[in-house]
Design a protein around this nucleic acid. Structure first.
Lengths: 137, 137
DNA sequence: CGGGATCCTATCTGATACTG
DNA sequence: CAGTATCAGATAGGATCCCG
């Protein structure tokens, strides 16, 4: 979560806020949590069920982080058993919209990236081969 | 780098590509590297100097990752001493543009977030205090 | 100069058990 | 139900040495 302080002359003023956001939304689950919460108030157990694979602990941690950053609002109903609901704040909704831009990019270049990877990996594999120089003299 | 497969009905189709991108650009340095490379061809040692605090190893790793994903192009000049230059690919340039959207969000909500954090932390601090119940009676 | 190999630490994550 | 506490494994990142 620490900052990357780059030294590129001017662009540093551009890059740093990005880093902060990246820090906020990076991690496997954050976007999923925000997305799930975007539908309306969500309870802890709903999130736990809906975001398959996340552990209690991590879900709690992420929720706290998002709450701390003002992206999620946490409402506790002092009933028994307790009931806690999470809702997106306005900034978070905006953020989710902005994220759509990334989605678009990802979709646009999905196969470009896939191809690049495949090609790169092929190159690496060849470099590993123990010299297939089958020169017929 | 593994995928988060969320179960939220339809939005999963939206969330997953985002996850891929997030995976690509998360990490303290990636955005900084791309930003630095955006100025034009950059050499390894330039990056090392300009991105203060990054280690050789990690820089190498990140460069490989970005190259593999087709975001950076690596050119080796077989001179002695060797000279290697990195340039952004077109998708990467687009990505950087898209990132600008996040920047804007970050700038817009910078103090909103800061305030939220401060307030949250205040609340936490109070919760820690060993019951300051100074009831006068 | 660029970067691979090795070793080590810090942080992140997951699994599980326990509690108000 | 909604967490907290604890422990262990995975991963990111850093330091250093060495080689073409």
């Amino acid at each position: 979560m620490s900052r990357s302080h780059i030294d590129v002359p001017e662009l540093v003023t551009v890059a740093c806020p990005v880093s902060e956001v990246i820090d906020s939304i990076s991690g496997r689950w954050t976007v999923g949590i925000l997305t799930a919460a975007a539908q309306g108030p969500v309870r802890f157990s709903e999130l736990e069920r809906v975001i398959r694979g996340i552990s209690r602990r991590v879900l709690t941690l992420k929720l706290r982080q998002l709450e701390r950053d003002g992206l999620l609002h946490r409402t506790v109903y002092p009933t028994v058993p307790p009931r806690v609901e999470y809702t997106l704040t306005d900034p978070a909704t905006e953020l989710l919209d902005t994220l759509r831009g990334l989605t678009d990019w990802a979709v646009r270049h999905r196969d470009t990236v896939a191809t690049a990877r495949a090609e790169f990996d092929r190159g690496q594999a060849q470099a590993q081969e123990p010299e297939p120089e089958q020169e017929s003299d």
